[in-house]
């Protein structure tokens, strides 16, 4: 079984898919040097400038060109560098990519992967740190993927590249160096959650980097005799309601934890759906844990205050279990 980093898992997959299908290609800024985070290192040498296309700083045209190229039968993988920068191109994603199949009466499809590295990383300040995944879950036509582990960054990217739908693929910048076992290169289907840790007392639903905070919280809770079940959604649209319902039916308690701003975050959707479906089976109110509705601070101590930490998750779980 191979051990690789989160970044290498994606790169390995991308290279495999590009070898398998000559119509898979990449487009974005700084790809010629191997990507701003090194996620494309070695690929320009292997595949050349036409398939690893280094673009001018022009997000709307990059994403728009990818939409056009996808509608013309190729499979572009677009690199936006930071999820924050994708906002320059979001018209192309929301008004064009998400709607083309529908508005074209089914004559076309948009097999497109938009990589949007997200999240807090080394004090990058308010315009380079956001987690905006919930915005995209609101848009019919888009698929939203937030991998948390090297294994998932391999299997989910494979599915994303082979998908005939536009996929917003949000890797967490703080996970690039995370090492993990990658058992195989099989595609991981969208909409199937992963039980990161089994438990019986409280369900913690999360995705992306916060999954690791939740797992750490669960380990410390275990020493106190509280068994938390941690569910990694992996994909937010579609999302695995069945897995979440099954867990909450068992535990009767739910916390949804995510790094993004709590107000209007995807946690609200999960919480409302569970409250609606399982009202009679809940032993405690459904809780959410996210960032305050403030810009992400540049100063490291202030940035740290905004994080959803294992301690915060564990504290909330303790309170719930005592109710």
């Amino acid at each position: 079984m191979a051990v690789m980093t989160y970044a290498d898992a994606a790169k390995t997959t991308l290279a495999e898919e590009m070898r398998r299908d000559p119509l898979v290609w990449c487009l974005g800024e700084d790809l010629g040097r191997g990507g701003v985070f090194g996620q494309y290192k070695g690929l320009p040498e292997e595949f050349g400038p036409q398939r690893i296309s280094d673009a001018p700083i022009s997000e709307a045209a990059i994403l728009g060109a990818a939409v056009g190229a996808a509608m013309t039968g190729t499979r572009p993988v677009v690199e936006m560098r930071f999820a924050d920068f994708a906002l320059c191109a979001v018209d192309e994603l929301v008004n064009q990519a998400a709607k083309a199949r529908y508005m074209f009466g089914g004559q076309t499809k948009v097999p497109l992967v938009v990589r949007e590295p997200m999240g807090m990383w080394r004090s990058s300040a308010a315009q380079h740190s956001q987690s905006l995944e919930s915005w995209y879950t609101h848009i019919p036509g888009l698929v939203v993927v937030c991998p948390a582990t090297p294994h998932d960054n391999r299997g989910l990217l494979k599915t994303a590249i082979r998908s005939d739908d536009p996929v917003v693929y949000m890797e967490h910048k703080n996970l690039w160096a995370l090492e993990g076992e990658v058992p195989d290169g099989d595609p991981i289907p969208f909409g199937v959650a992963r039980i990161a840790r089994a438990g019986t007392d409280v369900t913690i639903v999360s995705w992306s980097a916060t999954v690791h905070a939740a797992t750490e919280a669960a380990e410390s809770l275990a020493s106190e005799g509280i068994e938390a079940e941690v569910i990694d959604l992996r994909t937010l649209w579609p999302w695995d309601k069945r897995a979440v319902f099954a867990s909450v039916e068992k535990t009767g308690r739910l916390i949804v934890a995510h790094e993004s701003v709590q107000v209007g975050g995807f946690g609200a959707e999960v919480a409302a759906t569970v409250a609606d479906a399982l009202f009679g089976k809940l032993k405690a109110p459904v809780k959410r844990l996210g960032s305050p509705r403030v810009p992400i601070a540049y100063a490291p101590p202030l940035e740290d205050m905004l994080r959803v930490t294992p301690a915060k998750i564990a504290e909330m779980a303790r309170t719930l279990v005592q109710q």
Binding site: L23, W25, L27, Q50, R51, S53, A60, A61, I62, L63, G64, A65, A66, V67, G68, A69, A70, M71, T72, G73, T74, P76, D91, E92, N95, Q96, A100, M103, F104, Q107
Partner: peptide, 28 residues
């Protein structure tokens, strides 16, 4: 014309698409 694009009602948003169509043609 199966590969022609639909009417673009939003203004200029199809100009980048044309670049992508040309890229796809070049790639093939």
């Amino acid at each position: 014309p199966r590969e022609d694009f639909p009417v673009s009602v939003p203004v200029a948003s199809h100009a980048p698409h044309a670049v992508g169509v040309a890229l796809a043609m070049r790639l093939r």
